[in-house]
């Protein structure tokens, strides 16, 4: 596939709507397609998703395809990789993008290996090199201490996975419409080597971390489970959620599911309040797209101050109760 053309994004749906990442992929995909003077294509894999997929037109897609198959009802690595191999053979895209989501993190390298093509993962910016017309990807490295610009190579399609909440979706244009085109793929159940044998959904108290407008983050410095509850109380009053660092999880102050960082959850709330967090890059890489970051830390030299807009230097034990009281007072007033 040396001469692929077109920018293809792998869309995801959430229930009957396009997932947030799909809008982001269409946003950045549109920019790349325009730079190359090519079409923006979107493909969706799943079962009974045609009507939802059509929403991609309004968000910037020129053509929308679906692989509709009951074996694709939920993500299954081998079946999805086989379907995407077929899709790439049919559409011969020059660039292929997916989200660095639970699906994309698993699927992208699997597919890149099958297509023997270059892949850049967790990208925060994508551009077209005006000279080579190849894709240049910007991504964090070394635990988000450095940024790397990666040339995705000459094999087509050049692949990238895009960090969630890193791109702007386009303003939806409902006058953009079209017919969703099915792509037929032969699949059989025997392809699936891995099988989900059980699913347990953890009951989330209050607001989901990923959906919260305000997130209160705590680290190992909180010192005890009892102290951790003061973060939960603050988050509850702010109608927000609590996030954590690896250290806090290791100490058992909180659930692993609350961990934020480049190898944990990434969030982009309106406000992130870092309490007793030093600001290790690994952690901050998961919150760097927050609109506002503020911190409370006893060490004025902590890296967290470099990444915060406002900060208070002091022990959290001294600062947090007064901060919480004042917040309550303001919210009540």
């Amino acid at each position: 596939m040396a001469n692929g053309a077109g920018v293809l994004i792998v869309g995801e749906v959430a229930g009957r709507e396009l997932a947030g990442i799909t809008g982001e992929l269409l946003g950045v995909g549109r920019k790349l397609a325009n730079a190359r003077g090519e079409e923006l294509l979107a493909v969706f894999l799943g079962s009974g998703i045609g009507a939802t997929a059509a929403g991609a037109f309004a968000q910037g897609a020129d053509k929308v395809y679906v692989v509709d198959n009951s074996l694709l009802a939920s993500y299954q690595p081998e079946s999805y990789a086989a379907a995407m191999e077929r899709v790439c053979a049919e559409l011969t895209p020059g660039i292929l993008l997916m989200g660095a989501t639970y699906m994309g993190r698993d699927l992208a390298p699997k597919l890149a290996c099958r297509l023997k093509t270059g892949l850049a993962t967790d990208c925060v910016a994508l551009n077209i090199d005006p000279q080579t017309r190849g894709m240049l990807a910007t991504r964090a490295a070394y635990g988000a201490k450095a940024m790397a610009e990666v040339d995705c190579g000459t094999v087509r399609p050049a692949m990238a996975s895009v960090k969630t909440k890193s791109q702007e979706p386009l303003e939806p244009d409902s006058s953009r419409r079209g017919a969703v085109v099915p792509i037929a793929v032969q699949l059989n159940a025997a392809l699936a080597k891995t099988q989900v044998v059980n699913r347990v959904t953890v009951e989330v108290k209050g607001i989901r971390l990923e959906d919260a407008r305000i997130v209160v983050g705590g680290g190992r410095g909180l010192g005890s489970i009892a102290n951790w509850k003061s973060l939960e109380a603050l988050a509850a009053d702010l109608k927000g959620a609590v996030g954590s660092t690896r250290g806090a999880c290791d100490e058992g102050y909180c659930e692993m599911a609350t961990q934020l960082g480049i190898t944990a959850k990434s969030i982009a709330p309106e406000l992130y309040i870092a309490v007793g967090i030093s600001g290790a890059s690994q952690h901050m890489g998961g919150v760097s797209f927050s609109k506002h970051i503020v911190c409370i830390n006893k060490d004025a030299e902590s890296p967290v101050f470099k990444l915060s807009q406002y900060g208070v230097v002091g022990k959290w034990e001294d600062v947090l109760p007064a901060f919480h009281r004042k917040v309550k007072e303001l919210l009540a007033g």
């Binding site: 503020v294 409370i296 004025a300 101050f305 406002y310 900060g311 208070v312 230097v313 002091g314 022990k315 001294d318 600062v319 947090l320 109760p321 007064a322 901060f323 009281r325 004042k326 917040v327 303001l330």
Partner: peptide
Amino acid sequence: VLKGETPAEAGENLA
């Protein structure tokens, strides 16, 4: 960096 007479006051100023 928000100041205050005490760390508590600085905390209030953050709010």
